[in-house]
Each structure stands twice: as structure tokens, then as C-alpha cells.
Amino acid sequence: MIKLGVNGKEVTLDLDPETPLLWALRDELRLTGTKFGCGVAQCGACTVMLDGMPRRSCVTPIGSIDGSEVTTIEGMEGPEIEAVQAAWAALDVPQCGWCQSGQVMSATALLQLVSNPTDEDIDNAMNGNVCRCATYVRIRQAIHDAAKTLEG
């Protein structure tokens, strides 16, 4: 039995401890905003917050994070995610949309750490998130716009 806090609720998982967090979230808890893209931490589509820091859920066995707090895109709150999602909608960032939960999670994590990121900060924070539709021009702009919103 593995206990996790997920989006503020305690959950108990009766699963193989090797089960990646990604599949526990999706198959067991039906939190489908977190996406499968590669399974080997190469694309970032599965990004969640683990104890407040971005983590690739596809390579995180649940047995290794017993007792941790997990936040998925469904459970994110606060000014940063609100600013990011508003900028994403205003610029129509998504195309196919599959990678965008992970992009939004990584962008939010960046803005939580760096309030006014440079292009280089964005490259460093977002380089692990692949977008096959190559919406990168708008992702970059949306992060800058969200930072401006947060500045007030």
C-alpha cells in the first residue's frame, strides 16, 4: 500500500510499487490531464509537481515517493497557473494540445521560481518539454505575457 497526497486529498494505492506515477494517476485516479508521450523522461508531457517541484511522472515509481504530495494540472492553484493559462488561451498556444498540460506545468514552475524570466531562463526551463506541433514561438511569448500579468 502506497499513500500519496494527490491534489490535496490523501489516496492509498494498492499497486505494484514499480508502477510509474503517470499510470497510477491516469489508470487508477482518472486524472487524465497528465499525458503519456515517451515513458523515458524525454518529452515532458507527463510533468506534475512533486512536493512543489516539477517531476516527470512517467519515470517516477510510486514506491519511491510514498508519503509525497503530488499536484497535477487538475489540482494546480495560484496566480502563476492562472496567469499562464490565461496567456495560453489569449495567444492560442495549443495546436494538437497533447503536450500542453506538461508545458503549462513547466511554465508555471518557472514563474514560481523566476518572476521575470529571460529568453535564456525560458530555454533552460522549457527545453525538456517537446511540442511536436512546434508551438514554441507562442509558448515563449505566453510565458513573457504571463510574467507581465503577475507583475501587475
Binding site: 491516469r26 489508470d27 482518472r30 487524465t32 490531464g33 497528465t34 499525458k35 503519456f36 497535477t72 494540472i73 487538475e74 499562464v84 493559462q85 495560453w88 488561451a89 489569449a90 492560442d92 498556444v93 495549443p94 494540445g97 497533447w98 500542453q100 498540460s101 503549462v104
Partner: peptide
């Protein structure tokens, strides 16, 4: 004008095949 699917794709609620249970 805004795309009709941008909001749902930015908040994780857009439904894809893999999300069918």
C-alpha cells in the same frame, strides 16, 4: 478570433482517445 479548443487544451480537460475510460 480565439480558437475554440485553446482553453480546454491549456487546462488538461480536452478529451483524447487515451483519456477514455
Amino acid at each position: 478570433r480565439p480558437k475554440l479548443d485553446s482553453v480546454a487544451k491549456a487546462n488538461g480537460t480536452a478529451g483524447f482517445t487515451m483519456d477514455v475510460y
